[in-house]
């Protein structure tokens, strides 16, 4: 962008923006209409449903559903599990991205491809496959039994849900971090080393701060879907473990749209809060995209 802006600012005859093409504003009209119709208005509709009763009286009852003991427990568990999975994803992904950055692989697209490729198998099926691995008679336990080791009982526990979250969302942590890391100028790192910084100092003072935008987008991209999932918990958590996503889905299944919308609003509030916190650390304004 910087490259483009300069020459344009220098030509006073230019009336238009970056591209210098006049009169193409109308090209954005379909998009603007679409976004108002299918993003802004639906959000207003969900707010309306969340704050009203069936006979359209204003109420806070739906929001108060959050404080129902079962729902509160589900919300707390969802927060807990999604924070744990986000942390695990970060711990797993950062070293991986560092290794991949230094790898002699010629094309970045190959690395990206290998990490994205599993996503081409339906995500429900991949999660179901974890049942096969974790079950009492599953692959892990068969191996353990063969080795005469005590078997593990993971399926239908919160641990299985965390595993499912980490498995499904790990690529969304790896890719943004990797994409930021490969853009770090090698000369900057070399300069730090020349000026006497050891490898730990170089990492703490140069690489880590520069990779922060990637880490931030990674955290958002793992935390939000983990917090709101209802599929992973219903496949790997059995019927006893309920997350806030399951509660909302159930409200809609039994036809309580107002209650479900109220709970969705609470969920959105949590997403907004987490983003506000994260955006404080992301002063650069993004830069850590997935692709």
């Amino acid at each position: 962008m910087k490259m483009l802006k300069k020459p344009i600012n220098r030509t006073p005859s230019q009336k238009h923006g970056a591209l210098g093409i006049g009169g193409i504003k109308w090209l954005s009209f379909p998009y603007i209409i679409w976004m108002i119709g299918f993003i802004i208005i639906p959000l207003l509709v969900i707010i309306y449903y969340g704050l009203t009763t069936k006979d359209s009286h204003l109420t806070l009852e739906n929001i108060a559903l959050t404080f129902n003991q079962i729902n509160l427990k589900a919300l707390r568990l969802a927060l807990e599990l999604s924070l744990i999975s986000t942390a695990i994803c970060l711990i797993l992904a950062y070293p991986l991205a560092m290794i991949l950055r230094k790898s002699k692989m010629k094309s970045n697209s190959f690395i990206v491809m290998i990490i994205i490729l599993p996503m081409w198998m339906n995500f429900l099926l991949r999660t179901i496959a974890w049942q096969n691995i974790l079950e009492r008679t599953g692959i892990i336990n068969t191996i353990l039994r063969f080795l005469n080791l005590p078997t593990l009982n993971i399926i239908n526990t919160p641990a299985a849900i965390v595993l499912g979250m980490v498995y499904n969302f790990l690529p969304f942590m790896v890719l943004p971090i990797y994409n930021v890391l490969i853009k770090i100028d090698k000369d900057v790192v070399a300069a730090a080393r020349d000026l006497g910084a050891n490898s730990v100092q170089t990492f703490m003072k140069i690489i880590l701060p520069l990779s922060l935008p990637g880490v931030i987008s990674g955290i958002t991209m793992v935390f939000v879907p983990s917090l709101t999932t209802f599929v992973i918990s219903s496949i790997l958590g059995g019927s006893k473990i309920v997350l806030i996503g399951n509660v909302i889905e159930q409200q809609f299944r039994i036809g309580n749209w107002h209650g479900g919308s109220g709970l969705s609003l609470v969920l959105m509030l949590f997403i907004l809060i987490s983003m506000a916190i994260l955006s404080k650390y992301d002063k650069e304004g993004g830069g850590g995209g997935l692709w």
Binding site: M35, P42, V224, T228, W257, S261, S264, L267, M268
Partner: peptide
Amino acid sequence: ILVAITNIPMLNADIVTGISLMLL
């Protein structure tokens, strides 16, 4: 403003996007 609106469906939870569209 437009870029911010573009980000909404990417940052928002799928379940909220799905529900809000269904309600609409």
